[in-house]
Computed example of a mutant assay.
Amino acid sequence: MPSSPPAPRVQTDASAELRAIALRMFAEHGYTATSLQQIADAAGYSKSSVLYHFRSKEALLEEALAPAVQTLGVLLDSTVARASSDELRSAFVVEFVDLLLEHRLAAHIIINQGQTLSDIPMMDEARRYIDCIGESFMSELPTTKQRVRLGIALAGAAYVLVASRPSAADIESIDEVREALVDVVSELIAGLNR
């Protein structure tokens, strides 16, 4: 009886797999406490394979954070205008909450490790975006109450998602959390025009 042919190996994008594993490990253990060897071991690759795809641990972090930072830049470009517009507010809140949920681990790293990783260009870019939104609060919202309201809404939503351990990345009821965040952020910023 002839032997069956081996099952075809599922092709995976090693770079994408390494970025995802590194992002999780950097969020869970911290960037400085995570080595390339640990990432390689978790992914089932050799360290040289990791270095084949990424020239350094910093390059791996940068590429892992890039999608979140780029999306953040696009979203925050018109935050105050969209958040204070009755017509645009709902769409903005949904986009903001979805950004946080989709890039939860990156947000965790940026928020919790941003100060200690300030020499990494992608981290600096993320922090510049966050600074820009803060500056736009100050210049575009006329009252302290409005600035505080928007700041608490956005920062509070981010904090809720990054305050828990990153290994809890699989939120039990993502739809319930998403709905609650959209409702609460919407309520908080509804008064920006008052």
Rank of each mutant, 00 (worst) to 15 (best):
L99E: 04
E63Q: 13
S84H: 07
P8F: 12
G134L: 11
R178Q: 03
G114R: 07
E187Q: 15
P121E: 07
N193M: 09
Q37E: 11
S186V: 03
A22W: 04
T71M: 10
I171R: 11
A20N: 09
L76T: 01
A42K: 03
D13R: 13
G114Q: 04
Y45F: 15
A157G: 12
S90A: 15
A153Q: 02
A43I: 00
T116F: 08
Q115E: 10
S15I: 02
E87R: 15
D119P: 10
A16D: 12
I171L: 15
V148M: 13
R19K: 15
A22R: 01
E17K: 12
M122G: 02
P8N: 09
S85H: 06
S15W: 07
L65S: 03
V94S: 12
L100V: 10
T71N: 11
Y31F: 14
R82W: 00
F137I: 01
L36E: 02
L72E: 05
H53R: 05
F137P: 01
S167R: 14
N112M: 15
S186D: 04
L188R: 05
P8D: 05
I39D: 01
G191W: 01
S136N: 09
E172P: 13
S186W: 00
R127L: 15
V69F: 09
I109H: 01
S139C: 02
S78C: 11
A81F: 09
L105Y: 06
L51F: 07
D13G: 09
L141H: 05
A64I: 03
R194D: 13
T12R: 14
L76S: 04
S139M: 06
L61D: 01
V148E: 04
L192Y: 10
L161Q: 04
